[in-house]
């Protein structure tokens, strides 16, 4: 019961934010089919309707036969961005922690002697 209540709270907060976002985008008036300048008639299905997708349409990466290398590049880029952030934040923190530990050991040894 407690878990269900918590799930409902999470979903309620999610719905509130989602509703605010939908209202904000619709109110800004930027969510039109021709918002990026191109007339909608020039698009496939230019009446503003989304293309009928079956999930099997060829993707850009696959069309030129470079799907594998593209995937590798994307993976390295994404993991790389996260690795850089982890290195920048976690590494100095771990060095500071080790330094603090060392100082504590030294001061306790000095205190004993």
């Amino acid at each position: 019961m407690k878990t269900i209540g918590r799930i409902l709270i999470i979903l309620a907060v999610f719905s509130v934010f989602a509703g605010l976002m939908v209202v904000a985008v619709n109110a800004s008036g930027s969510n039109t089919p021709a918002a990026d300048g191109a007339p909608s008639q020039l698009r496939p299905g230019g009446d503003g309707a989304r293309p009928e997708g079956d999930g099997n349409r060829p993707e850009r990466g696959e069309r030129d036969g470079a799907g594998g290398s593209r995937w590798m590049f994307g993976l390295i880029k994404n993991v790389g961005v996260m690795a850089v952030l982890v290195t920048i934040i976690a590494w100095p923190k771990s060095i500071a922690k080790k330094k603090k530990k060392k100082q504590a050991v030294v001061s306790s040894v000095n205190g004993n002697s």
């Binding site: 989304r50 996260m82 850089v84």
Partner: peptide
Amino acid sequence: PMGFAWRRLHDMSANIGLLLLGLHTALHWG
């Protein structure tokens, strides 16, 4: 109906999400 503002928002928020997830991972690295 297809909305191009949503597409741009989707791309932008996904890129911001990558950075935020990196920060989240870094702060929980220990």
